[in-house]
Amino acid sequence: MRIGYAAGAFDLFHIGHLNILRRAKEECDYLIAGVVSDEMLELTKGRRAVIPLVERLEIVSHIRFVDQAHAEVLPSKLDTWQQLRFDIFFKGDDWRGTAKGIALEEEFSAVGVEVVYFPYTIDTSSTKLRAALDALAQPAESRAG
């Protein structure tokens, strides 16, 4: 049985998140979705989650492609692997060829884990959704000017 792991904040859940989970499940027998904790999101991305971890876990756990939702609370993906022992790590292709992506591939290669990249959804992202929400939150006179 091939166990896959797809990690993400899954904040402001959108079609890009669903696409990654759907494609990941096509590549493995058992899919674990790692939902990055509020603290780890702040540490790694420098921003707070809009949706709290407990709610994001609830949402992700009910996606039919997901066999298990796991709160990712450790800063190192390798430490998470020590807990879960997955065979494949799924990542958006915006990581491919970057220093972080290359380091991730080397780290996981050493323990026999394959890193598989999926196309990043350009049209929809949590960053764009967050910017739209921020714009809506501004007073009307600020938006007009």
Results as ranks from 00 to 15, higher is better:
residue 64 R to C: 12
residue 65 F to A: 14
residue 69 A to L: 10
residue 79 D to S: 14
residue 53 L to M: 11
residue 75 P to G: 05
residue 70 H to Q: 05
residue 79 D to I: 00
residue 50 V to F: 13
residue 50 V to C: 03
residue 75 P to W: 03
residue 68 Q to D: 02
residue 66 V to R: 05
residue 55 E to H: 15
residue 54 V to A: 11
residue 67 D to I: 02
residue 85 R to C: 06
residue 77 K to M: 02
residue 64 R to N: 11
residue 64 R to D: 11
residue 58 E to P: 09
residue 77 K to V: 01
residue 71 A to K: 03
residue 49 A to C: 13
residue 65 F to P: 11
residue 84 L to C: 03
residue 57 L to W: 12
residue 80 T to Y: 02
residue 86 F to M: 15
residue 60 V to M: 06
residue 74 L to I: 05
residue 50 V to D: 10
residue 71 A to H: 05
residue 76 S to N: 08
residue 69 A to N: 02
residue 67 D to M: 07
residue 73 V to L: 01
residue 79 D to M: 12
residue 60 V to E: 12
residue 76 S to A: 04
residue 68 Q to P: 01
residue 68 Q to E: 13
residue 52 P to F: 09
residue 73 V to E: 13
residue 76 S to D: 15
residue 55 E to P: 02
residue 86 F to C: 12
residue 84 L to Q: 00
residue 59 I to E: 07
residue 88 I to W: 14
residue 82 Q to H: 13
residue 80 T to G: 04
residue 54 V to T: 11
residue 59 I to C: 06
residue 68 Q to K: 11
residue 49 A to M: 04
residue 63 I to W: 02
residue 54 V to P: 10
residue 69 A to I: 05
residue 71 A to C: 06
residue 80 T to D: 05
residue 49 A to R: 08
residue 76 S to W: 10
residue 75 P to A: 01
residue 74 L to Q: 12
residue 55 E to T: 14
residue 83 Q to T: 11
residue 59 I to G: 06
residue 78 L to V: 07
residue 57 L to I: 08
residue 88 I to Q: 10
residue 88 I to C: 07
residue 75 P to R: 01
residue 65 F to G: 02
residue 65 F to T: 10
residue 81 W to Q: 04
residue 84 L to E: 07
residue 67 D to F: 03
residue 65 F to L: 04
residue 52 P to T: 00
residue 78 L to H: 11
residue 79 D to G: 10
residue 77 K to P: 08
residue 71 A to E: 14
residue 77 K to W: 01
residue 49 A to D: 08
residue 87 D to Q: 05
residue 72 E to Q: 12
residue 59 I to T: 12
residue 57 L to D: 11
residue 63 I to C: 13
residue 72 E to L: 03
residue 80 T to F: 01
residue 73 V to Y: 00
